[in-house]
Design a protein around this nucleic acid. Structure first.
Lengths: 206, 206
DNA sequence: GTCCGGTCTATAACTTGTTCTAGATTAGCG
DNA sequence: CGCTAATCTAGAACAAGTTATAGACCGGAC
């Protein structure tokens, strides 16, 4: 496992201290506003005001509302990845541990449903211009799942299973957020898809 | 199997002929515009003009852009359901047939990627106010998958598998539409998730 | 310190989804 | 036919994302 939890910005010019602070204020304001009204409550003018920057500056840091919310999700995911690592999931086999981890993440979302709404809606609404950022989020999610499986060198088959688990995770979240599925239903879906993991683990002989 | 392919409008007052025609013109215009530039090319003023109705009328028929595009998807799905029924999928077991069917649907989307983009983005972006319509689309998709499986009375376990397959289908489509996954990758994901079906079919003894 | 290019602020303007209004048209009904 | 309520039209108006502009400010080169 690599240890770059908090760093994923290979980007262009290294930000000055004031700039880093601005960026942080913006992300904080974004999360704050999202925690109340969800996606639509994150209004660019309000984010700018709450963060104490001009609207143009906000757009310099995040070229669109979707970019901003995806970056917010990146931020939150990194926190969560750290948190999850501290208490590794219980469970005998990999499938259980992954389901356990995702349910833990799901409970975190239940605590801030509006924030979850804003982030997930932005994630799935993102078009090609946001692909790099969305990809970063996806890699973070993959890392979390692989951590839960406890694998150093997953096979191609296992990576496929992880992809499908991620698909299910995102889509199930959406159905929950839009009120079309209950918490129990999401739990079942997660547990169902996690059985795919067993399929890829032909238990190593008696 | 029931035969209500083209009917799913239990709604309030039965539309007059002219109204039905308007509705159809609107959906046609929507699909037309979507086929060019995708989600953002479907602009309400343009749809209204192309359909030859006033903007206010468009909003009376479809209370938002997302409603309109979800209805467009409903329309397209019904066509596809009909088409798919004519030539049932080849394949020995249920998993193969479902994967086959979904890949056929996927190829249809590849022929109109912009239209697919508009419809799928609307579907996942829809909030609670569109739940009933999104649910209808979901039921249609479920029906298509169950048809492919060839089941009259699926078990609860099988229904769970179908749910997960649907999740994967939607999410994989999104990653493809936003350029983060190749066609080949989507194929693998579909085939991977379809293996869940085998898990629910403890083959009925010799 | 002074100067310069890039950054930030404040604000207006533009775009597109959505709502509203006033008047014309239509459908159903006696 | 003539009436009435609902519907439709044309167009203005509003909301929020995004872009553009002009000037103030900051940080590094000299």
């Amino acid at each position: 496992m690599e240890h770059m939890t908090a760093e994923a910005r290979p980007a262009s010019p290294p930000l000055t201290e004031r700039q880093e602070a601005r960026r942080r204020r913006i992300l904080h304001a974004s999360a704050q506003l999202a925690s109340r009204g969800g996606f639509e409550a994150v209004q660019m003018r309000e984010v700018a005001e709450a963060a104490g920057v001009a609207l143009g500056t906000l757009y310099r840091y995040f070229p669109s509302k979707v970019h901003l919310l995806v970056a917010t999700m990146q931020d939150q995911l990194q926190h969560m990845h750290g948190t999850l690592r501290k208490r590794p999931p219980a469970g005998d086999d990999a499938a259980e541990r992954v389901a356990d981890t995702l349910m833990r993440a799901f409970r975190a979302m239940q605590r801030e449903p509006h924030l979850a709404d804003a982030m997930v809606r932005a994630l799935t609404f993102a078009d090609r211009s946001v692909s790099p950022e969305v990809d970063t989020v996806s890699r973070l999610t993959t890392a979390i799942i692989l951590d839960a499986m406890g694998l150093e060198h997953p096979t191609l088959e296992q990576l496929s299973a992880v992809r499908v688990i991620e698909h299910t995770w995102h889509s199930a979240l959406i159905t929950w957020l839009s009120g079309r599925a209950s918490i129990a239903q999401v739990k079942i879906d997660i547990e169902t898809v996690c059985r795919l993991i067993d399929l890829t683990e032909p238990d190593p002989a008696p």
